[in-house]
Simulated scan of single mutants.
Amino acid sequence: MERICKLLNHALTPYQAQLGETDASGHRQLTVVDKQGEVTLQRTVSQRQLQDQRLLVDLVDGLHRDLQIAEGRLQPCVIAALQHQRTFQGTFA
């Protein structure tokens, strides 16, 4: 898990990721803190998300998006509009 923490820290710079202990259901608490040590995000992640490369990439992408929202650089309504647009791309003949 130390390797996963290093990868997460590198991917989320300047934030730091901290992984909690595994709970009874095999999940871990992922906490992302800013430079001042303030908690910015917390997520419960499965062991599978941390071990499968594709799921880990998806997790990091989601964390990047959530950090942009937390920083005020991206509004949730913009994300919804982009997802809606992707749903309908290529549907017109």
Rank of each mutant, 00 (worst) to 15 (best):
I79F: 01
H84R: 12
V57S: 13
T13M: 10
G20A: 08
T13L: 11
G26M: 10
T87R: 05
T31W: 01
Q68R: 13
H64R: 06
T22K: 09
D34Y: 07
L41Y: 07
H84Q: 15
K6D: 13
E71Y: 09
G72T: 09
L74R: 02
Q42Y: 03
L59Q: 09
R65L: 15
Q51W: 05
V57R: 11
V60H: 08
E21V: 04
H27L: 13
K35T: 11
R86K: 10
L19T: 05
V32M: 06
Q89A: 10
A11F: 04
T44F: 04
G37I: 04
L82F: 04
D58A: 13
Q75H: 14
T87W: 00
R28V: 00
Q83T: 12
V32R: 05
Q85M: 10
V33R: 02
E38M: 11
T87E: 14
G26A: 09
L30N: 08
A80G: 02
R43W: 12
Q29G: 03
T13V: 09
Y15S: 05
Q75W: 07
D23V: 01
L50T: 01
R43I: 10
L63R: 00
L63C: 07
Q16C: 02
V32P: 00
L41G: 00
L55K: 11
A24G: 06
A70K: 10
R65E: 14
H10E: 14
L55Y: 06
V32L: 10
R54Q: 15
P76D: 03
E21W: 00
D52G: 01
D58Y: 01
D61L: 12
T31H: 00
Q68L: 13
R54M: 12
E38V: 11
N9H: 01
V39A: 11
V45K: 00
D58K: 07
A70Y: 09
A17T: 03
R28C: 00
G90K: 02
L12D: 01
Q18D: 12
G20M: 07
T31L: 03
V78T: 15
L50F: 05
S46G: 10
G62M: 03
R86L: 14
S25D: 15
L59H: 06
R73N: 13
T40E: 14
A24Q: 14
Q53M: 08
Q85T: 13
T31D: 08
S25P: 01
